[in-house]
C-alpha cells in the first residue's frame, strides 16, 4: 500500500515539476533558474505542511506516503538544482550561481517552517 502511494505521488510529481518549470521558464528572460527554484520551494512548503500536520493531528500513513516520498520528494529535485548551479558558474554567472545555491536553501527552509506553522494553526 505504501509503495503504491509513493508511485502514485511520483506519477503526479515528476510531470508537475516539468510543466511548472517550463511554464515559469518561458515567462522570464533572466538566467536565474526560477522554474526549478519555484518547484523546490513549493515542494518544501507542501512537505513542511505535511510534517506540521502529522505532528498536530493524525494523518493516515497512506496519505503521508502519497504526499511525502511520493509527491513532494519527486516534485523537488536536487540533480537539476545542482546541475543548473554548476552551469551558471561555468557560464560566468558566478553571482547567480551562488545566489541560486544559497537562496534555494534558505527559501526552502523558510517555506517549510511557514507551512508547518500554518498546519499547526489550522489543525492543532
Amino acid at each position: 500500500m505504501n509503495w503504491l502511494m509513493v508511485v502514485l505521488g511520483a506519477l503526479a510529481g515528476a510531470p508537475l515539476r516539468y510543466l511548472t518549470d517550463r511554464a515559469v521558464q518561458v515567462r522570464h528572460t533572466t538566467v536565474f533558474p526560477w522554474g526549478t527554484f519555484g518547484v523546490n520551494v513549493t515542494a518544501c512548503a507542501l512537505l513542511g505542511f505535511l510534517t506540521g500536520a502529522t505532528t498536530a493531528a493524525t494523518v493516515p500513513p497512506a496519505l503521508q506516503h502519497l504526499v511525502g516520498p511520493g509527491l513532494c520528494a519527486t516534485l523537488s529535485t536536487y540533480s537539476t538544482y545542482s546541475f543548473e548551479t554548476l552551469r551558471l558558474a561555468e557560464a560566468g554567472a558566478k553571482f547567480f550561481a551562488a545566489a541560486n545555491a544559497l537562496v534555494s536553501v534558505l527559501a526552502g527552509l523558510g517555506a517549510a517552517y511557514l507551512a508547518g506553522a500554518l498546519a499547526t494553526a489550522l489543525l492543532g
Partner: peptide, 16 residues
C-alpha cells in the same frame, strides 16, 4: 534522476 533526488526531503531533514 529528478525523481530519485529530492530537495524537499533534504530541507525537512535540516528542519528536523
Amino acid at each position: 534522476l529528478g525523481g530519485f533526488t529530492t530537495f524537499s526531503t533534504a530541507t525537512i531533514d535540516t528542519q528536523r
